[in-house]
Write a protein that binds this DNA or RNA. Structure first.
Lengths: 362, 362
DNA sequence: CTGAAAGCGCTAACAC
DNA sequence: GTGTTAGCGCTTTCAG
């Protein structure tokens, strides 16, 4: 059986080996080589060995791009997110990437900075790259034309963190209304009646007390929960104790200062995300106010620094990793089943009591 | 010119429109349609309009995957990173994604958790997906076989954050030796002579005082800088004041406690990254030691919480965004020029003095 | 200025 | 168990 190998043209070693090169070296057809390497169909034992040997000798790597074109699926998903360097999104992204990888998918990530036009562009680019599905953190609670095509979504889709009421699509979020309300109730139970709030929202350029219309669902849920719990306790919502601001640290710190500078200031503040928590802390430092004494504080989203700070900060925690994992799993199920199942989950929040809330009952 | 449109088969509206569909609707050839849409070659004005109209009517999206196969380039780069949810890497990633996008590239991100096998897998997957280049945060200072193929790298490549001495390839890092030395010198200038160090490294499973061999360059640079500056000041390096630990918060806090629990403890500690800074702070809280008084502290990498903490933490800052941007720019230049230019940059670190270092001169 | 046709590298019927 | 072959959707000479 030791026939002399055909004097076929040697593959130039400076180019990546292709399936045909492997087949040639192994002296089989492309189909057989493909079967051997793809581990499907049936291949003779010795043939298999020959092909594998040839492949490794040539350092062959499947050209997934060609396979994708043929198969019509890229095994890639797109993630459209506000800001990967944000402490919530970075962890969610971690979960998404890892979960996707477990299922053979890789993730293309694009930041939008909460800009709708950036989001629209991102979706277009990702669709052109033929991602098999999309996980989007929508920047607007209303605009979703770029997400629908005809009578369904442009691609398998999962919304993360923020809901779009008019869009019936799988959404992974948290019960922020409840979370904010629970925080207020804790404050009330400790004897606080003068409660303020620092709200992060991209819907506003400069700090203001007037509630913006275009806020995403997390913002309106948290504000709604705050207002509901205040009403429930027959407490007054005071606009001068509330500020809406962008996440920018300088601006949000300024907003916190505006709330606290007044003689007639609140005894407690709810910060609607980690950046706002830091902003309140910074403002307190500047104004020489002691957190947990002069100003009680509850933040949204836990972080290591929150439990290390003096005093440790009480927070409304969200299951970030779980959320990301869920989003990925949901999307992959959608892709695999080709069905437009839009199962939504609103995870519960958890109030973690530490020492940043002063007790006024005495 | 109003010829009746041919009764050609209508494109089924449930499938994505292809170039040929557009061409058909516009009554031109595929080549012409491609030219019109690709904005190259020459196309008659009215033809152009017809094609554009057809494309928009069909909601046509270029199939970039087909284009990539044809063109041999994917306009995608791969990022292989230890952990996207880490406060250094998330910001670097932000810079990379945004910079890449400015140049028409998208980014596929994979985490390795500093595992070499995960890194090898990641590189293989990315190469199979035919990324045009790779930005890698290498998990090992030695193993780089998976990054080279023949006499050059497996693809255009830039190393981020960590150098691999034996691999001559463009690397974006910082002068960590100098950064650590500067921190020690500051401590010395404030009268400290008993100085410890908490070192984050994946090369160690449990906290230990013995310096691991396999540490990446950032670790050995920082430790080296520490040792050099100590020697320069004729100070003794005390192994019981030094701990190597994984970034895990519980473990690193334990390690910090081990350093501080001793009666004979150091008066100052250098923490080699943000996680270690937090670990020292947590340990101090547990042991009822006041940062900036009982224990002076200098951390690596700045963060908002570092300046908001009481006292604000003195840190060695690195230009994270610039580093990410540089890595992306360097890689894209490499891709575009097809030349193996491996320009490396070691950015300077900056010591930001705040209030966590007690002054013993008096 | 426009069209015809040859692939890019792979997979999946379909034959043998 | 293995080979033949027809494309996936696009770009790009090469003619006209």
């Amino acid at each position: 059986m030791s026939s002399i190998p055909p004097p076929a043209a040697k593959k130039p070693s400076d180019k990546a080996a292709r399936l045909v090169d492997v087949a040639q070296l192994a002296q089989v057809s492309r189909a057989t080589a493909a079967r051997a390497l793809g581990g499907y169909g049936t291949v003779g034992e010795d043939t298999l060995a020959k092909v594998l040997a040839a492949a490794s000798q040539l350092n062959y790597r499947t050209n997934v791009i060609a396979r994708s074109m043929r198969a019509g699926r890229s095994l890639t998903i797109g993630l459209v997110i506000a800001d990967i360097s944000n402490s919530f999104f970075d962890r969610a992204t971690r979960a998404i990437i890892d979960t996707a990888a477990e299922h053979g998918y890789q993730v293309l990530v694009i930041n939008t900075d909460d800009s709708l036009t950036a989001e629209i562009d991102a979706v277009r680019v990702l669709l052109e790259k033929r991602v098999d599905g999309l996980i989007v953190v929508p920047s607007s609670p209303h605009h979703h034309e770029h997400l629908v095509g005809g009578d369904s979504t442009v691609a398998p889709l999962v919304l993360l963190d923020r809901r779009i009421p008019e869009l019936s699509v799988g959404t992974i979020s948290t019960d922020d209304h409840h979370g904010a309300a629970a925080a207020v109730r804790l404050l009330v139970s400790r004897g606080h009646s003068r409660i303020g709030m620092l709200v992060a929202t991209a819907a506003v350029a400069e700090p203001t007390s007037v509630r913006p219309n275009e806020a995403v669902s997390t913002v309106s849920d948290r504000v709604g929960g705050f207002i509901a719990a205040m009403g429930e306790a027959h407490l007054q919502y005071r606009a001068d104790w509330v500020r809406y601001t962008s996440v920018d640290h300088a601006k949000s710190t300024l907003a916190a200062q505006q709330i606290l500078e007044n003689e007639d200031r609140p005894t407690a503040i709810l910060a609607t995300n980690a950046d706002m928590t830091l902003a309140v802390m910074d403002a307190c430092r500047t104004l020489n106010l002691v957190v947990g004494h002069d100003v009680s504080l509850i933040g949204f989203d836990d972080a290591v620094w929150a439990r290390v700070f003096t005093p440790p900060i009480t927070v409304v925690e969200r299951p970030v990793y779980e959320m990301g994992r869920s989003a990925a799993l949901n999307l992959i199920a959608q892709i695999d089943s080709r069905s437009a199942r839009s199962e939504s989950i609103a995870f519960p929040t958890e109030l973690i009591e530490r020492e940043s809330v002063r007790d006024f009952r005495a």
